[in-house]
Design a protein around this nucleic acid. Structure first.
Lengths: 195, 195
DNA sequence: TAATATAATTAACATTGTTAATATTGTCAA
DNA sequence: TTGACAATATTAACAATGTTAATTATATTA
């Protein structure tokens, strides 16, 4: 990598780090071009020398968060040999990540379709985020003969839709109203699906 | 009602109608104070003589949409005596409404928590919107002895979370990718839950 | 050191929600 | 019918947003 490319790489990273910090803490509505650039130590216009627009920068953050999420899920899934347990632990890790960072859930799932979400690449990342949590466990159940390939796919979708919906309502502070209730509801729904 | 109260009532209705038309058609991001007032035939500042802020006006729209949705669901549910069928038809009507008006789904479920959604009253309306579609059918299954009260509640939540998640991903044009696929997936998931 | 290329900043524009100041309209007594 | 006052609507303005163009500062090279 040339010196100038290294510089460019560093600059983009400054902005990405600043944006991630804001998204994690205060959430999407605070992640304005001016706030991000401020936190990165540059002027707002400088940001546009390194990113086409604000959405591109946010997209980089989504990819980073996704990688972070996957890095949390994988060891949780691999901590057991039991297929059903793999799913339980994977899904719980998935949920816990978004509970810990509501701003990231907001970013992943609640952004207006026409803005960040409309980029099909971002939608792909989000949609796929549940797979590392479920796929290994389901594969195992299939290989053990407990499930057909077809059933496994249906169950993956059930889990995907259900935990997303669950978190969506939890995020709106409706039901369940607290974390204990969330985990209890999650367990019950998962049990209903994989036993 | 006095003459001036009638006037006030009419004015608010003009703004609500304009806002609903925009929300139905172009969606939330187009529903600005200026656009709504324009469509209502008044200046943007006039709006603030009748609503505390834009969120209050949008909230009125949510309530109207909820009533409209319920008016579609009820006859669908009552069109059969079979408990499971009541649920199938109710949920399908619920989904169809939001498929027809993606802007209303966006308004109901995708708005940032800190803005419209943070009003607990609006969150209540949204959360409850699934009940007319499920409750009658579940009640019937309970009264027939097919379900316990407890199971019925769990299933209601399962359905609530699942169809919301399903629609969320469908709205992002991911999976299912078309309406036929959506209905097929919906049927499969409902079958898995109530049979 | 001077000339040039690169990179960062300020200024500016259009758009947003919202408020204050102003203009218009309607009502009613003289 | 006119004049005073209240009610209502409109324009002007503010701060914040994303974004671009013009300008300034910095680095590189001859």
């Amino acid at each position: 990598m040339s010196a100038s490319e290294l510089q460019k790489q560093r600059m983009t990273q400054y902005f990405i780090d600043a944006a991630k910090e804001i998204l994690r803490g205060e959430g999407l509505k605070v992640a304005s071009a001016r706030n991000i650039a401020d936190k990165a130590g540059y002027s707002y216009a400088t940001l546009y020398n390194y990113f086409e627009d604000l959405t591109s920068l946010i997209f980089e953050c989504v990819r980073d968060f996704q990688a972070e999420l996957e890095a949390l899920i994988t060891p949780a899934v691999e901590s057991t040999e039991n297929g059903a347990d793999k799913i339980r632990r994977g899904v719980t890790a998935w949920i816990n990540y978004f509970v810990q960072y509501p701003g990231i859930f907001e970013l992943f799932f609640l952004e207006r379709i026409g803005e960040v979400g409309h980029r099909s690449d971002i939608a792909d990342v989000i949609y796929a985020s549940i797979e590392p949590a479920c796929q290994p466990g389901l594969d195992q159940l299939v290989s053990e003969g407990s499930l057909t390939q077809n059933e496994a796919e249906t169950k993956m979708n059930s889990i995907r839709f259900q935990i997303t919906g669950l978190l969506l309502y939890y995020g709106n502070r409706k039901n369940p109203s607290d974390y204990t209730g969330l985990i209890k509801t999650l367990d019950r729904q998962i049990e209903l699906l994989i036993s």
